[in-house]
Amino acid sequence: MNYSNTIKTSFISIPENESLARVICASFISQLDPTIEELTDVKTAVSEAVTNSIVHGYSSKGNGMIFMDCTIENECFTVEIKDNGKGIEDIEKAMEPMYTSCPEAERSGMGFTVMETFMDSVKVNSVVGVGTKVTMKKVIKSKLL
């Protein structure tokens, strides 16, 4: 198989668009014939990254844009979620399990841990005052069977 496909989307940073982002990714990867578990993994990881942009990147003000680009290269699905928000000062700290900068909002501090557990790779680039980009990859194994 030698196949590639790409979509580029953008939406405003409001909680209503978390489910939209999940549905877009789920629809996009359906062409790879994923298992239910693979589909759930991708939806969960995407939900975490988009929520981070809304809650942390744009401080829940709903006034920013989130850019979500999805690519399929053969069996590999890549999603890049980018915001132009406040950025992350200490990425290593932010990615520690149970760490949250919003304990009062009952954030579990597990967003990045979920992304790392449910996807094959997670890369975070962030510049304070400029924004954050999360790139996640997952091989959809069911197609390989």
Partner: peptide, 13 residues
């Protein structure tokens, strides 16, 4: 039908 870490935060809270 779906739960992310926000649900974990709710349950632990």
């Amino acid at each position: 039908s779906f739960m992310d870490s926000s649900g974990i935060g709710v349950i632990i809270g």
